[in-house]
């Protein structure tokens, strides 16, 4: 049996009352891919991620994560994915070790495996020897890596990151992305939403969202090339448009506001 595609979405829609937060969005994500989600605030990125992670029930449309239906198999999905949100979601009043052990317990990671994972997370987050410190006092960059570590304590094949680096300084952000890249090389699918254009460059493919709709989906390079073509400039002489320019003009053509 062929392994199912990590994420398949067809016409996925979510409405809150009269407001349509996500409007008939369709795409697929392949194994090991870093799939970026770009768009202004309120474009529907977080809502889409919440539907894929089982936090929100879709109003219409279909979707599968790891071959499991987002309508009926939300609990099964949760066991196979890792999730880390823009809001720092470790418990600030617990120690580093206590946080790791909590999520280990929740994901059924115990015994020698837990010990191994704990060691791995501490190493990855460069927090060896500090297991007893209270998490709330850590610098943001460390917290971010620790949160990532606990989110993947169960070694999921698919990772959802909702604006994981907001507020983190560029150096820490760079190191964070090195980690993401490493996961991708090992076959982990990473689904990430972001505001930062330089982060978008790291993604294998980018999905642009605006007002709940998917307005573009391609590799960063092809998006830039297409933008250059639309502008009619000569790709050999003029500098190619940056992703930021692509983003702004795309959204403006759609008639949306650029807030992000």
């Amino acid at each position: 049996m062929a392994e199912p595609r990590p994420v398949v979405v067809e016409e996925l829609t979510r409405r809150f009352g009269d407001f349509t937060a996500v409007d008939r969005v369709s795409f697929q994500v392949g194994r090991g891919e870093i799939f970026g989600f770009l768009g202004p605030n309120g474009a529907g990125k977080t809502t889409t991620i919440k539907m894929l992670t089982g936090l929100l029930e879709p109003t219409e449309g279909r979707g599968w994560v790891a071959g499991l239906d987002v309508h009926g198999q939300r609990r099964e999905i949760r066991a196979r994915i890792g999730y880390m949100s823009q809001r720092f979601s470790l418990y600030p009043d617990l120690t580093i070790r206590e946080n790791i052990d909590l999520f280990g317990g929740l994901y059924g990671v115990a015994g020698t495996r837990l010990e191994a994972r704990r060691r791995w997370i501490l190493e990855m987050a460069e927090l060896q020897g500090q297991e007893g410190s209270v998490t709330g006092t850590l610098p943001l960059g460390f917290k971010q890596r620790l949160a990532l570590g606990t989110a993947i304590i169960h070694e999921p094949a698919i990772l959802f990151l909702d604006e994981p680096t907001s507020g983190v300084d560029p150096v820490a952000r760079r190191r964070f992305w090195d980690l993401i890249d490493g996961f991708s090389h090992r076959g982990v699918t990473v689904f990430v939403s972001t505001h930062y254009m330089e982060e978008a460059e790291y993604c294998h493919r980018l999905a642009l969202m605006n007002r709940g709709r998917l307005i573009a989906l391609d590799t960063p390079r092809r998006l830039r090339e297409e933008e250059a073509r639309i502008r009619g400039s000569d790709p050999s002489s003029a500098p190619p448009p940056s992703l930021e320019e692509v983003f702004i003009s795309r959204v403006e053509r759609e008639g949306g506001a650029v807030l992000g």
Binding site: K50, T53, G54, L55, R75, R78, A79, I81, Y83, M84, S85, R87, F88, S89, L90, Y91, F103, L106, Y107, G108, A151, F160
Partner: peptide
């Protein structure tokens, strides 16, 4: 309010 509830809810915890 803190956002940690979402983190619990995406875990296999029912």
């Amino acid at each position: 309010e803190m956002g940690t509830l979402d983190q619990l809810l995406v875990s296999p915890l029912s």
